[in-house]
Amino acid sequence: MPALLSPVTNAVAAVLAATHDAAGALGLTPGSAGAWLLAVLLLVVAVRTVLLPVTIHGVRSSHARAHAAPQLRELRQRYAGSRDLEQLTAMRAEQKAIHAEHRVSGWSLAPALLQLPLFYALYRVVSDLTAGHSVGALDAGLVASASAASVAGLHLTSHLGPTLGSSLPAGLVMVAVALGAALLSLLAQRWFVLPTTNVADLPEGMATVQRLMPWLGAVGVLAAAAFVPAGLIVYWLFNNAWTFAQQGLIWRLAPTPGSPAAARREARALEGAAS
């Protein structure tokens, strides 16, 4: 698997090296903590910009599924309890026709799967930096530079346990960054993702899990922060800030039909028309 994904890892390393050069071109001292923090921020911007088509596909897919939901619900009710092979074949044919009518994608999991190699590459690059290994365009000089840069004694390659044991201020900075990343994840899910999710057609168990997802995500960030390098947590902080802003725009401008956010948008439009 590492060898298979090495092109992705090298691409991420090249982007990070390029964003560090860009930070220097913007006036920050090359190798400084500010330059590396800006490099990580610009890496987030580059990665999330590349992933925008995936995000747009996801929004369109959720809208298509929402438009198809009433017909699919009626179809399931009509064939409820049926075990006849001929009827089940007819039901699948009708279901396929409804999906085609509303352009429901059969690749709903593809966007998430496409991001997995990228997440692995990000972890691999930061892990190699932590170990002092060069990777792709991040040569020995850049690796040493990233390892030496620090804020209040906190390095991009630091881990929480040893950092708290050796320097309380640096450990507290790392805890604050992890809490910020977890909070942004929680608020984005609670304020923007849940209200744009229609759970009416989900089984109660799945709906409950959906409601718990914001908390599970935040706890997951905090749990992972105990084991991953500080550079990856900084990436999560910037990445979750992007997600927060992006989901806020989707919540306001393109909520899923039938969701609470869509009802709120319709009510707001009616109030505007009446005033």
Rank of each mutant, 00 (worst) to 15 (best):
G161H: 12
P260S: 00
A112G: 14
Q77N: 15
Y120I: 09
T208V: 09
V8E: 14
A181P: 08
L156S: 07
V59G: 07
L253I: 11
V234H: 04
R265Y: 07
E101V: 13
A254S: 12
A176P: 06
L249K: 12
S185T: 06
S158D: 03
A225M: 03
H155Q: 14
A144Q: 10
H20V: 04
V125R: 05
K96E: 13
L109C: 10
A64S: 15
L5I: 13
A245S: 02
T157G: 09
A100C: 11
L154Q: 05
A100Y: 04
L164T: 07
T243R: 14
A181G: 03
L186H: 14
L51R: 06
S259H: 11
G165D: 13
E74I: 11
W236I: 01
L138E: 01
R190I: 10
R252G: 04
L222E: 02
L109S: 15
S275F: 09
Q247K: 13
A110G: 14
W251K: 01
A23H: 02
G205K: 04
T163F: 00
T197H: 11
Q189K: 05
Q77W: 15
A224S: 10
L16S: 03
L52I: 11
R211W: 03
T196F: 03
Q95M: 11
L116W: 14
G180S: 11
G106E: 06
D21N: 11
G141K: 07
Y235K: 00
Q210A: 07
S185I: 01
A176R: 08
A262D: 15
A35W: 01
V12E: 10
P111R: 09
L113A: 12
V199L: 05
D139L: 00
Q87N: 05
V193R: 03
R83M: 04
A90P: 00
G81N: 05
A261E: 07
H67F: 11
V199I: 09
V228P: 06
L52Y: 08
L129P: 00
S105T: 13
A144T: 08
L184G: 13
S61C: 12
G132Q: 06
A33C: 07
G153D: 09
W36D: 02
L118F: 15
F192M: 08
A3W: 10
H67K: 06
